[in-house]
């Protein structure tokens, strides 16, 4: 069976600096894979190379067996890579519904004339896609805020809208970049529930960059650990937690030096 997403010996360099060095792993089925590592380990750079925002200087990313090398960012997105950003990156000035409707962009093709007149097939498409978006709104329990401009929402809700927007694309794989950073404990727990529900209802693999080790240990089925751009571990949470290389990367050589872990856990 071909994995949904394959990262194959990807190397990303900026000038003389190697941000990601020969990293390989893959995702398939409905795996929830956490991508962890200290700050500057290359996690976001790796996500960006999957989205096509950065181009790997060598190696390639494959989606369901097809190489994404040289494919434009928007084609990668419509091809099935959904992405939620670290700072939500919502479209301020648009409402929650309109933000989600951007995620249905691919299904709303139409000529300028049909959009300007807004009758017939285009209007039917708009109505049908609105219904799909409403399902996602129900899923994320955003009914109360659906017509609010996103900039007026609390940060926790904004991040939820960011994930909802990515899910509106009906992606084949979902990339989550620190979805829980900046959230309160309560919001994190709500978010964890949504992640499990996404996996249960949509059954799609997720690659999840996360700093909260407690969340990672509780939820992830597999953990990929990066340090200085190199993959140092890949496996079940328990095995990774016991891995001496991981302990060194996170905790330093001396076990008393706990501060580098950053988050509780």
């Amino acid at each position: 069976m071909i994995p949904t997403l394959e990262v194959d010996k990807v190397r990303i360099t900026f000038g003389g600096i190697t941000a990601v060095d020969d990293v390989s792993f893959d995702l398939s089925g409905q795996e929830l894979v956490a991508l962890i590592g200290p700050n500057g380990a290359g996690k976001t750079a790796l996500l960006n190379s999957i989205s096509g925002i950065y181009r790997p200087s060598s190696g390639e990313v494959r989606l369901e067996g097809r190489s994404l090398n040289g494919v434009p960012v928007h084609k990668i997105a419509t091809g099935g890579v959904g992405r939620a950003f670290q700072h939500a990156e919502l479209f301020a000035g648009l409402t929650v519904v309109d933000n989600l409707m951007v995620g249905r962009h691919r299904q709303l093709k139409g000529s300028l004339l049909s959009m300007a007149v807004r009758v017939g097939p285009y209007l039917r498409r708009e109505v049908a896609q609105r219904a799909v978006v409403e399902e996602v709104i129900d899923f994320f329990e955003l009914e109360q805020v659906r017509n609010r401009p996103v900039s007026s929402l609390p940060f926790g809700v904004q991040k939820l809208v960011g994930v909802a927007r990515a899910l509106c694309m009906e992606p084949r794989v979902l990339l989550l970049d620190e979805p829980s950073s900046g959230l309160t404990r309560q919001e994190k727990e709500d978010f964890a529930r949504f992640m499990l529900r996404i996996r249960h209802d949509r059954g799609l693999p997720m690659l999840w960059v996360e700093h909260d080790m407690q969340m990672v240990m509780d939820l992830a089925e597999r953990i990929v650990v990066l340090d200085h751009g190199v993959k140092i571990a890949d496996g079940a949470p328990d095995a990774v937690a016991e891995n001496p290389a991981v302990r060194t990367a996170y905790l330093g050589v001396d076990d008393t030096e706990m501060t580098r872990a950053g988050s509780p856990g």
Binding site: S51, I53, P72, V73, H74, A77, T78, R83, F85, E89, L90, F91, V102, G103, H105, R106, R165, A166, M169
Partner: peptide, 9 residues
Amino acid sequence: LAAEALGVN
């Protein structure tokens, strides 16, 4: 960038 990552050309 976010627009592009959502499939907007």
